[in-house]
Amino acid sequence: MDETGKELVLALYDYQEKSPREVTMKKGDILTLLNSTNKDSWKVEVKITVNGKTYERQGFVPAAYVKKL
């Protein structure tokens, strides 16, 4: 869990989004878990840094590609 009590997951593999509802992640990324009720895909939040500014983006990733921490 992070400092706000949200559950975290670790990306086990790289994943490139295939639709606007998904998010891209790299192996080793730590993501905030938002919903894990679907056995196939979990909703997560990723933090992306562009030019020194951090943005948050929500979307789905394959459940088999992440592990709860």
Rank of each mutant, 00 (worst) to 15 (best):
G52K: 03
W42R: 00
G28K: 03
L12C: 12
E3L: 14
S41H: 15
R57V: 10
P62F: 10
E17D: 03
K26I: 07
A63L: 02
F60L: 06
A63E: 03
T24H: 03
L69D: 01
K27S: 05
T24Y: 03
T37Q: 11
R21F: 14
P20H: 09
Q58W: 07
V50S: 08
D2E: 13
Q16W: 11
A64L: 09
D14Y: 04
V44R: 00
G28D: 04
L31E: 01
L8F: 15
K18I: 06
R21W: 15
V9Q: 00
A64C: 15
P62E: 04
L34D: 00
I30V: 10
S19C: 10
Y13E: 10
V44K: 00
A11F: 03
V23A: 03
T49A: 07
Q16D: 12
N51P: 02
L12M: 08
N38Y: 08
Y13D: 06
M1R: 13
G5Y: 13
W42Y: 05
P20E: 11
F60I: 05
D29H: 04
Q16S: 11
I30L: 07
K18E: 07
A63T: 05
G59A: 03
E22G: 15
R57W: 08
L33N: 01
E22C: 08
Y65T: 08
E7H: 11
V66M: 06
S41Q: 14
Y65N: 07
E17C: 12
K47H: 10
K68L: 14
V23C: 06
Y55K: 07
K67E: 14
A11M: 03
K18Q: 13
V50Q: 09
T4A: 12
K43T: 06
K53D: 09
T24F: 03
S41M: 15
L10D: 00
P20I: 08
L8P: 03
D29V: 05
L8N: 04
T37M: 10
L31A: 07
M1T: 13
S19E: 08
I48G: 05
V50A: 09
R57Y: 08
V50R: 09
Y15A: 01
T37P: 03
Y55S: 09
K47G: 04
L69Q: 03
E7I: 15
Y55M: 11
S36Y: 07
K68Y: 08
S36I: 05
Y15N: 00
K6W: 10
P62G: 03
R57G: 03
L34N: 01
T4W: 11
L8V: 07
K67F: 07
S41P: 01
D40W: 14
F60A: 01
K53G: 07
G52C: 06
L69I: 14
